[in-house]
Design a protein around this nucleic acid. Structure first.
Lengths: 133, 133
DNA sequence: AGGCAGGTTGACGTGTGCGTCAAGCAATGA
DNA sequence: TCATTGCTTGACGCACACGTCAACCTGCCT
């Protein structure tokens, strides 16, 4: 049961992104796949990182922020100072996520009122057309 | 009780953005403040729109998406077709927000495990130092 | 009259996140 | 042997979201 590997286009297909994007993420230090000669060979771990990137992007994280997340997720045993700064970054991210939750709740409320008004406007339109007949 | 108004720098200070950004949002059609001569005069409504923009940005919306939200929020009585497309857009946004909620929950879980590993690594470090003493 | 604070319109610059060629290597099948 | 498929590295281009001048107007204070 040798650990599974993927080609760049495997991942591109599966995650619905372009190979260009994947290479760009590597350029930016978010990935560092193995090589077989020139070819990039991706591990399941790389795939997890890619999914993390995509999730991050969906909620508006920059690639730099995604890279930090990946580094946090890494079992990179750093020194004590680094570990403390990692914990601080984790706390920061958590706060950001909480703010985003609030923002999303607020947005949902606004969509509710927008929808109501939309429906009311539609009812008015229909009434107008009935009268016009 | 005349309705309150704001200068561009009033809003910039209060919302902690630059005047340049505010003008840019206007350029992109997200705002259309009154004028007194050359000067822009902002209404409470404009301020609401600005807050909506900032909320949108925090959860990764593009300015174009924010503009759509503002338009949805507007009591712009359109024709029936427009109203239906507005309802469709609202439904779309809601789906997107739900996805983002899932993404955020997942991120929080990942931060949890990252934190755990971080703490464990710290404990190891401390133990090592105790032995070294 | 002079000067400053605050506003205005360009216009160009910048960082991010890729898209889009171009040119080339490497294995594979007809 | 030749062509196709899939991968590679540049290198340039581009849209977005502003930052950063420059030059100018305008009201108000002294």
């Amino acid at each position: 049961m040798s650990s599974q590997t993927y080609s760049i286009s495997d991942l591109a297909r599966e995650l619905d992104i372009t190979t260009r994007a994947i290479r760009f993420y590597e350029e930016q230090g978010l990935l560092s796949p193995e090589r077989r000669g020139q070819e990039r060979i991706y591990s399941p771990r790389d795939k997890v990182s890619l999914k993390l990137i995509l999730r991050g992007k969906r909620i508006g994280f920059s690639l730099a922020e995604c890279r930090e997340l990946i580094e946090l997720y890494d079992p990179t045993s750093g020194n004590q100072k680094q570990l403390h700064s990692m914990l601080a970054k984790i706390a920061e991210r958590r706060e950001q996520l909480e703010q985003q939750l609030l923002d999303i709740e607020q947005m949902k409320l606004e969509l509710d009122t927008a929808e109501e008004r939309c429906i009311q406007a539609l009812e008015q339109t229909i009434k107008g057309e009935e009268i016009a007949q």
